[in-house]
Amino acid sequence: MHNPNDFEKSIGRVIGHIFGNDVKPANIRRLSGGASQETWLISTEAQPVILRRVPHGISKPANSTSITMQTEAALVEAAANAGVKAPKVLYTLTAADDLGYGFIMDYVDGETIARPILRDPEFADARENLSRQCGEELAKIHALDIRSIDGVSRMSGLAQIDQYEAIYRDMGVSRPIFELALQWLRQTAPQPLADVLVHGDFRLGNLMVKSSGLAAVLDWELAHIGDPREDLGWICVNSWRFGKTQNRVGGFGTIEPMLEAYNQHRGLNLQPQDIDWWEALGIWKWGIMCLIMYEAFRSGSDESVERAAIGRRVSETEIDLINLLERAHA
């Protein structure tokens, strides 16, 4: 464990690198993050910045599909340079900084928490605009040329099914709805579309939203090469509608504005039903992700009540899958 004073001194040196040695951090505050990844808000005399890092000595959890911090920094930088609403990367940490792996970026003002975005009057315009804006932004992300960036793996829909099935089998649990969904996903898998850069976790919680709508796309750690419909389906997963189930896209909008904007930018003709399979895959995957997080509690690697409780969110994906399978088999 590092001395907190060492941490502050290291932050001070990095802030000096970025803004000049006369600029000092004023306040350093942990925002959120899981067991392995930390997000810090650092106010400075120049401007507030965000540190995203994985501290030294923390290894990636087993079965993790996330990219490294260096790759994430490179992707966010490439995205911002190409006009995607992404924070400007100011600095990538090196070993000499003694802060682990990570990077410093612009702080983008706004709200990430779903509840106010979906319910507060302040975000009424945002809710009106977000579906279309998500289509535009995903089109830009999917058009990114990332050939110069190392460490981004390719994951088709079927490859993800294989991967998550293996994880599920290893856990030795019996969830009949997951088995049935797995059969259905395998039997009805659509032909893949041409590969694009997939953000991998494009949903409320990872989107910075201001009153007029989308301000920045955050949390690129699950980015990979794959099918563009994966991102379009993931934001439709009912868990990401946060109770506003009537609005298929993120709880804020119908799917048509998103697909229209997306199709227009990318010269495609995707229809709402083209997203169905990917939405189902997303629900099934999220269910297994919840089991993985609970497994961290069961195995003793993370003893928090949060990790225990998430095991009881598996049933939300089961009810969503059975609702969907019932319609599919009707």
């Binding site: 506003k244 189930t245 089961e318």
Partner: peptide
């Protein structure tokens, strides 16, 4: 499967939107 899923979500998260559906 539907009956079992409904019973489970009523315990785990009775206000979950998928239950109403």
């Amino acid at each position: 499967l539907k009956a079992a899923a409904i019973s489970q979500i009523k315990v785990d998260q009775p206000r979950y939107s998928g239950l109403k559906t």
